[in-house]
Each structure stands twice: as C-alpha cells, then as structure tokens.
Simulated scan of single mutants.
Amino acid sequence: MTPPPVRDPGLQPERTSLAWRRTLLAALVSAYFIWRAATSAWARHGGRIDIEVIGLGTAAAVATAAATIITACALHRTKTLHRTPGAPHGVLTRTTAAATLALAGAITAAIVLSH
C-alpha cells in the first residue's frame, strides 16, 4: 500500500487568515460607529439619560464585547492556522458565530434607535 499523499495547503491558510482579519476589522469599525452614535445621542440630549441613550449605550456595550470576542477568536485562529491548517474547532466557530450575531443585533438596534 502506498501512503496517502501529503496535503499541501498552499495559500489557503493565508487566505483564511486574511478573511478573519477582514471580519475583525468590520467588527471594530461597527463597534466604533455605535459608540459614536451613543455619545452623540448623549450630547444631543444634554447629558440627560433617556431611552435612546440607554438603548444606544447597551448596543455599544454589546458591540464592544462582541468585537473583543471576535478579536480573541481571530488571533487564536491565525496563530493556530499557521501551525496546523485545517478546520477550526467547533467551539471557536460557534463562539465567533454567536459574537457575530450579537454584533448584528447591536447594529440593528443602533440603526433603529438612531433614527
């Protein structure tokens, strides 16, 4: 029997790493704009706390937490990708997906509240 051929990953790990970085950049930019909307609403209301400020502040906190989780996952995935190419662990994929959904929810809430 002949041994199976050694898999040459080629540029696939680099492309995957770049995709994770683009996702991270989008998460960070989204979180920044939500924080900006929250601080603008607070200033627009003269420092008075109302439902718009609370909602945007909550969306900003969720976006920041999601961006932080995505950052950690992207850094971990990039580090492990160059050592052992292949599919990421299920926990990493589920964690990133959950953080991305939370970020999408925060973005939606910020859009609705910013009218």
Rank of each mutant, 00 (worst) to 15 (best):
M1N: 14
P3E: 12
P4F: 02
P4M: 04
P5H: 06
V6D: 11
V6Q: 15
V6S: 13
P9Y: 09
P9N: 10
L11F: 04
Q12H: 08
R15P: 00
R15G: 08
R15N: 11
R15A: 07
S17K: 05
L18N: 05
L18R: 15
W20G: 01
W20I: 03
R22N: 00
R22S: 02
R22L: 05
L24A: 07
L24I: 03
L25K: 15
A26E: 15
A26H: 14
A26M: 15
A27P: 04
A27V: 00
A27Y: 03
L28D: 01
L28A: 11
V29D: 10
F33I: 02
I34N: 00
I34S: 00
W35S: 04
W35Q: 02
W35H: 06
R36T: 02
A37V: 00
A37Q: 07
A37T: 01
A37W: 04
A38H: 03
A38K: 03
A38Y: 00
T39W: 01
T39N: 02
S40R: 15
W42A: 07
A43N: 13
R44C: 03
R44D: 11
H45K: 11
G46N: 11
G46Y: 10
G47K: 13
I49D: 03
I51R: 13
I51T: 10
I54N: 03
G55W: 00
G55Y: 02
G57F: 09
G57E: 13
G57P: 09
T58L: 14
A59D: 04
A60L: 01
A61Y: 01
A61T: 06
V62S: 11
A63C: 08
A63Y: 13
A63W: 07
T64E: 06
A65D: 12
A65F: 12
A65Q: 15
A65N: 10
A67F: 07
I69C: 10
I69G: 02
I69R: 15
I70V: 13
T71N: 07
A72P: 04
C73D: 06
A74P: 01
L75K: 02
H76K: 14
R77Q: 12
T80R: 11
T80L: 14
L81G: 15
H82D: 01
R83N: 11
R83L: 14
P85Y: 01
G86F: 07
A87G: 02
P88Y: 06
P88V: 09
H89L: 06
G90Q: 04
G90E: 03
V91H: 13
L92I: 14
T93L: 02
R94Q: 13
T95A: 12
T95W: 04
T95V: 12
T96L: 09
T96C: 07
A97M: 03
A98S: 14
A99I: 06
L101C: 02
L101A: 12
A102N: 10
L103K: 05
A104G: 08
G105L: 05
G105H: 07
A109K: 01
A109N: 03
A110H: 05
I111T: 13
I111L: 14
I111C: 07
V112I: 15
V112G: 08
L113V: 12
L113D: 06
S114P: 00
S114K: 05
S114M: 01
H115N: 09
